[in-house]
Every structure is written in structure tokens, then in C-alpha cells.
Amino acid sequence: MTKILTLPDEAATRALAASVGAQLQAGDLVYLSGELGAGKTTFAQELARALGIKEDVTSPTFTLILEYESGRLPLLHCDAYRLEDLGSGELADAGFFDFLERRDAVRLLEWPEMVANFLTAPNWKIEILFDGEARRASVWKSD
């Protein structure tokens, strides 16, 4: 089921993230797409807060995967931005498959398109679209 929502401001992005965060279950894999500047960081921070995570959620671009344990479920936050064009050996070295196998946690994956060939089916697909004027979100949830 796909829903398209308009996001007139940052508060709307946060409200969407809070709503998704409240519905997440252990093992959920969430794809989060959107161009640079679309608001993915804001979305990830609010989603973490909805899970009860107390730490600051910082960008995982550098370390690839960050784990947070202070919420009602563990959150693994992975950013595939730097994983473009890597083969399966390098992705394994980077810990990417360990990330995919962590069924005890909520797995939030930014830039899934960079690792499209290696992915398993998600439970949620969130895409934030920004055309220079308005933001919209496409939200897909598996049945």
C-alpha cells in the first residue's frame, strides 16, 4: 500500500517519522530514499526519537552503520551513500550483510539504491521527493 503525503514544512516530516516510528516492529527493514537535502536526517532523528532512543542520531555516512540501544527496540542506522559500486566482498567487509541479518533490530537504510543488487525486501519504503518547491513523501508499507 502506497500513500503520497505532502510535507509543507519540517514539522510535517517529523510527524510522518514519528508515526512510522510508533508502528515499527523488531526486524523491520526501512528504506529511506531522497536526494541530498530532502530531509532524511530529520526523518531519521525523529524516527529514532519515536523508538525512545535518547542519544543524538548523527550521520552514519562515515562509519556506515551506527547502532542505538536506548529505545524500545535496537535501531541500526546504515548509510549506503559511500557503498556505491562495491562488490559483495567489500560489502561483507564493511559489515553490510551483518546489518541485513540483524532481525532483533529495526534496520533503517539510507540510500538503498546504492546497494540495490544486494538487498532483501523491505517492510517500509519511504521516499522523500523534493522538486525545489514542495516536499512530498511516498510511503509504502508491506501487507
Binding site: 541530498l36 543524538d56 550521520s59 555516512t61 562515515f62
Partner: peptide, 17 residues
């Protein structure tokens, strides 16, 4: 410390866009 992105990451990503 940074609450979100590192400054060099910001430079790299803005340069790309």
C-alpha cells in the same frame, strides 16, 4: 561535537549536488 553531519561530509555532499 556535531549533532548530525561532520563538516567535511557537508562539504563533500554539497559539492556533489
Amino acid at each position: 561535537r556535531t549533532r548530525d553531519d561532520a563538516v567535511g561530509e557537508g562539504f563533500d555532499k554539497v559539492a556533489r549536488s
